[in-house]
């Protein structure tokens, strides 16, 4: 019986990156505890949707997860090209199955990471309640959706940069980086996050309504995926 190679690639990548993700999550928790412990001043808890998204509720582990995961999954994306495509094609897997498999694993990763973050947040709230602090916590579903979309988009962006360098000249790789920065700014801007970089402020991206933001995020995800597929479709496997 012939195995479905897409699923094989998807699961094995999920396994590999998933194990990195657990390490990263561990570090995340430690960092979060450390920063909370040092800055704890009995702040008032305001967990409205915009407060969370605008980073005003910086105390929550959800927020720490949201801000640091971008970098982590960007790196995962960067590492999903050269050695990985070589490994799969060397083992008789087509570039299409490689592409679809990684897309599949990104999907699994985004969901599992968000689930882990939600679980940790639940634990955090439980601890806060046990400490007798009055909380009025309501995290909108869209906040979790934002984590899912961020994981997917930043993973793809990293993968896209690596594919650009792998497939084309070095200068094109830098063009890819520029495009990637632009995409990252747009993603932050439309969701009303601020990025402490002058260029970002100059671009003056307006915060849009939730539904439009979701739509734009999805469009960017589809767009970057298509470009990655085009870059890797007939790519030569290097030594």
């Amino acid at each position: 019986m012939r195995k479905n190679k897409t699923t094989v690639v998807g699961l094995s990548m999920f396994q590999t990156i998933g194990s990195w993700m657990m390490w990263y999550t561990g570090i995340l928790v430690v960092l979060h505890i450390a920063s909370t412990a040092t800055s704890y001043t009995g702040i008032e808890l305001n967990l409205s949707q915009s407060a969370l998204i605008n980073g005003e509720a910086g105390w929550s582990i959800l927020n720490t997860a949201l801000t640091t995961s971008k970098g982590f999954f960007l790196v995962c994306g960067l590492l999903s090209m050269g050695a990985v495509i070589k490994y799969y094609v060397s083992n008789g897997v087509t570039r299409l199955d490689y592409f679809k498999g990684i897309i599949q694993s990104i999907f699994y990763l985004s969901l599992s990471f968000t689930a882990v973050a939600a679980l940790l947040f639940g634990l955090e709230v439980l601890i806060i309640n046990m400490m007798g602090i009055e909380t009025n916590i309501h995290v909108p579903l869209v906040f979790y959706l934002k984590i899912v979309l961020d994981v997917i988009l930043f993973y793809l962006v990293g993968w896209f940069i690596a594919a650009g360098f792998y497939r084309l000249h070095v200068w094109f790789g830098f063009v890819c980086i520029a495009i990637a920065v632009l995409l990252a700014f747009v993603q932050s801007g439309i969701w009303g996050e601020s990025v402490p970089i002058p260029l970002f402020k100059l671009m003056n991206i307006y915060e849009v309504s939730i539904w439009i933001a979701i739509l734009i995020s999805l469009l960017m995800i589809v767009g970057v995926s298509v470009v990655i597929r085009l870059l890797t479709k007939e790519v030569r496997i290097k030594d």
Binding site: K5, G92, V93, T94, E234
Partner: peptide
């Protein structure tokens, strides 16, 4: 090229 059935049968 990019043929899953054939590529599975070739080891390089």
């Amino acid at each position: 090229f990019e043929n899953a059935n054939v590529m599975e049968q070739i080891v390089f």
